[in-house]
Design a protein around this nucleic acid. Structure first.
Length: 490
RNA sequence: GUCCCCGUCGUCUAGUGGUCUAGGACACCGGGUUUUCAUCCCGGCAACAGGGGUUCGAUCCCCCUCGGGGAUGCCA
C-alpha cells in the first residue's frame, strides 16, 4: 500500500495491538476492518504497538503479530517495522512525549498526584457498603497542599497521577457505527489514573495523545473501548488535542454469547494457519462478518469486498463466530484454488503427515491434490488421505474390515485377485478392473464399489476411486489386493 | 449496583410503514447426479423477544419490560 497523505485525502487509520500474545481473531477483525476501509479510501494505515503493560508485552508477540498480519495479507504504511513521519510507533519509546503532556495537565490543574496505595484503595472499595463495583474514587488527594505532599512523599509513597474529571459534563461520541452516544462525566468512574506509581502511563491516557499526534482521523476499534472513549475525549479536551472520529466494532462472540476466547475453540490466527486454513478464506469470512454483499454472495474476492465494504452497513449486533461456516468457506477456497499454488500450500501438511514431497515428485503431487481437494475442508485433511496413494499396503480400518469380511467383499477380493494375476496390466487397469469385476461377480453400484474401495484404499470413504487408482499405480493396487486375499479369503 | 451498546430462522445476515406467503448462506433433514464416499444439483425445516402506543396499516417509528453483551483496573 502506498502512503497517500495528500490534502485531498488525509484519511488516516490505525491498528494498535498490544503485544501480549498471539494475534486473536477479534483483534484480527479490527485489523481487517482498518485495512479494508483504508484500501477503499486510499487512506494511510498506521500500526502502533501498545506495549505499556511491561509485564505482559514481549518482543516475540510483536513479531508474531507482524507475521500473522502479513499472512492474512494485511499491510500497513507506517509502523515500528517500517518507520514513518509520526514515530516512534511503540508506546514504550514515547514516554518523553507523554511526560510533557502530563506536566501540562498538572500545571493546568487538570491532573494531580495521588498518594493512595493499592491497599488503601481496596479497603475503601470494600468499605463502600460491600458494593465494590459501585465504588468511584473519592478524590481525596485532589487538593493536597505542598506540605501534605511532602509528608506523604517522606513516608516513601510513590504517587500515581490522576486526571481530574469535571462534574456533570456531557460527552458525546459520534460513532460511525453506533451513531451518537452520550455519556455524562459524573458516571465514568471518577478521577482515573493516567500515570502509574512506577511512572508508566496507562492506555486510556496516551491512546488519545498518540491518535492526535499521529494524525489519526478515524479510529476503528472494538466495542469494548466505547465506554472508555469519554475518558479519552476528556483528556483530549484538557490538552487541546484534536479528536478523531470513531467507529466501534461490535465484539465477536463465542457460541455462548460471551466474548470470544480460547475456551470457545481456536482463537489465534496462528492456530488457524497451522490447522490448514487459507488466509484468503479467513480473511473473506472475517471481512464479511457483520454485513452482507449486495448480491448476497458470501465468497468474494478481496477487491469486491473492498469496493463494497461500508461502516454504515455493519450490523450493530455482536456476531457469534461460526467455526462451521468458516470451515465450509475454507473448503470452497480449496476447491477453487489453482492446483499448482494449492499444491505448494499442501506441502507443509504433507510433510507433517510424515511424507516427503520431494520423493513423491511434483506431477504425482499435483495429481493427488487434484483428486483429494474435493474431500478437504482444511489443508491438514490431506494428512489422513495421502497415505492412500503412497503406502505400500492400506491397512483396512474397522469399516473397511467389516465390509471385506462380508460375502460380497470376499467375492470381490477373489475376482480382483484373479484379474490382477491374469489379464490386467499397468496400461489401463483401473477401468478394466472395475468393469471385469462387475461382469464376473454380477455386482454393481455400491456393492461393487464399496468392497473395491476397501481393498484399494482400506477405507469406505475417500477420494474418487477410478481417478485414484491410476495415481496409486498398478503395482500397489495389485499388492493391496493380494494382501486382502491373504487376510480375508484363506 | 451504575453507565453504555444490542435484540429477524440454531448461526451469519437481507429487508421495508403496505410489494412479506419475511429472502439468501452455513448447519440439519430428504431427493437427484456420480456404475462408490465426497463434490455438484434440487427440495424441506426454521425467525421479526414480549407488552403498550403512533398509524387506515407496523418486523420496520416511540415507550416500557425482558433478554444478551460491554465498561466500571496502578490491563489494553
Amino acid at each position: 500500500m502506498q502512503p497517500r497523505i495528500t490534502k485531498e485525502n488525509p484519511m488516516r487509520v490505525r491498528f494498535a495491538p498490544s503485544p501480549t500474545g498471539f494475534l486473536h481473531v477479534g483483534n484480527a477483525r479490527t485489523a481487517i476492518m482498518n485495512y479494508l476501509i483504508a484500501k477503499k479510501n486510499g487512506a494511510t494505515m498506521v500500526l502502533r504497538i501498545e506495549d505499556t503493560d511491561m509485564e505482559r508485552s514481549t518482543k516475540e508477540s510483536e513479531q508474531s503479530i507482524y507475521q500473522d498480519l502479513a499472512w492474512l495479507g494485511i499491510s500497513w504504511n507506517e509502523g515500528p517495522d517500517r518507520g514513518g513521519d509520526f514515530g516512534p510507533y511503540r508506546q514504550s519509546e514515547r514516554f518523553d512525549i507523554y511526560r510533557n503532556y502530563t506536566e501540562k495537565l498538572i500545571a493546568d490543574g487538570n491532573a494531580y498526584y495521588c498518594y493512595c496505595t493499592k491497599e488503601e484503595l481496596d479497603a475503601m472499595k470494600k468499605g463502600a457498603d460491600g458494593e465494590a463495583e459501585s465504588y468511584t474514587y473519592s478524590g481525596r488527594c485532589r487538593n493536597l497542599t505542598a506540605d501534605e505532599r511532602a509528608k506523604l512523599e517522606a513516608e516513601g509513597r510513590k504517587p500515581t497521577v490522576r486526571f481530574r474529571v469535571p462534574d456533570n459534563t456531557s460527552i458525546v461520541v459520534n460513532d460511525r457505527i453506533k451513531g451518537p452516544v452520550e455519556f455524562n462525566s459524573s458516571n465514568i468512574g471518577g478521577d482515573f489514573i493516567i500515570i502509574r506509581s512506577d511512572g508508566v502511563p496507562v492506555f486510556n491516557y496516551i491512546v488519545i495523545i498518540d491518535d492526535a499526534l499521529m494524525k489519526i482521523s478515524l479510529v476503528i476499534r472494538g466495542d469494548d473501548h466505547l465506554s472508555n472513549t469519554p475518558k479519552q475525549l476528556l483528556v483530549a479536551r484538557a490538552l487541546g488535542l484534536p479528536e478523531p472520529e470513531y467507529a466501534h466494532l461490535p465484539l465477536i462472540m463465542g457460541p455462548d454469547r460471551s466474548k470470544l476466547s480460547k475456551r470457545h475453540g481456536i482463537t489465534s490466527v496462528e492456530m488457524y494457519r497451522r490447522q490448514g486454513y487459507l488466509p484468503e478464506a479467513l480473511m473473506n469470512y472475517m471481512s464479511m462478518l457483520g454485513w452482507a454483499s449486495e448480491s448476497g454472495d458470501e465468497i468474494l474476492p478481496l477487491e469486491a469486498i473492498i469496493s463494497q465494504v461500508d461502516l454504515k452497513k455493519l450490523s450493530k449486533n455482536a456476531p457469534i463466530f461460526d467455526f462451521q461456516k468458516l470451515k465450509w468457506m475454507n473448503g470452497m477456497y480449496i476447491r477453487e484454488y489453482p492446483v499448482p499454488a494449492l499444491t505448494d500450500l499442501f506441502i507443509p501438511f504433507i510433510k507433517e503427515a510424515g511424507y516427503n514431497p520431494e520423493a513423491i515428485g511434483r506431477k504425482t503431487l499435483e495429481d493427488i491434490v487434484t483428486i483429494v481437494r474435493k474431500s478437504c475442508e482444511l489443508l491438514s485433511d490431506i494428512g489422513g488421505l495421502i497415505g492412500i496413494f503412497l503406502d505400500e499396503v492400506s491397512e483396512p480400518d474397522s469399516d473397511a474390515d467389516a465390509m471385506l469380511r462380508t460375502e460380497e467383499g470376499r467375492l470381490v477380493i477373489a475376482a480382483a485377485r484373479d484379474l490382477f494375476r491374469s489379464e490386467l496390466n499397468a496400461g489401463n487397469f483401473a477401468s478394466t478392473l472395475v468393469n471385469r469385476v462387475k461382469e464376473n461377480t454380477a455386482l454393481k453400484g455400491k456393492s461393487l464399489f464399496m468392497p473395491l474401495r476397501a481393498i484399494i484404499t482400506g477405507r469406505q470413504k475417500g477420494p474418487e476411486l477410478d481417478q485414484s487408482m491410476p495415481v496409486i499405480g498398478f503395482d500397489k493396487c495389485k499388492k493391496r489386493t493380494e494382501f486382502c486375499y491373504d487376510r480375508y479369503c484363506k
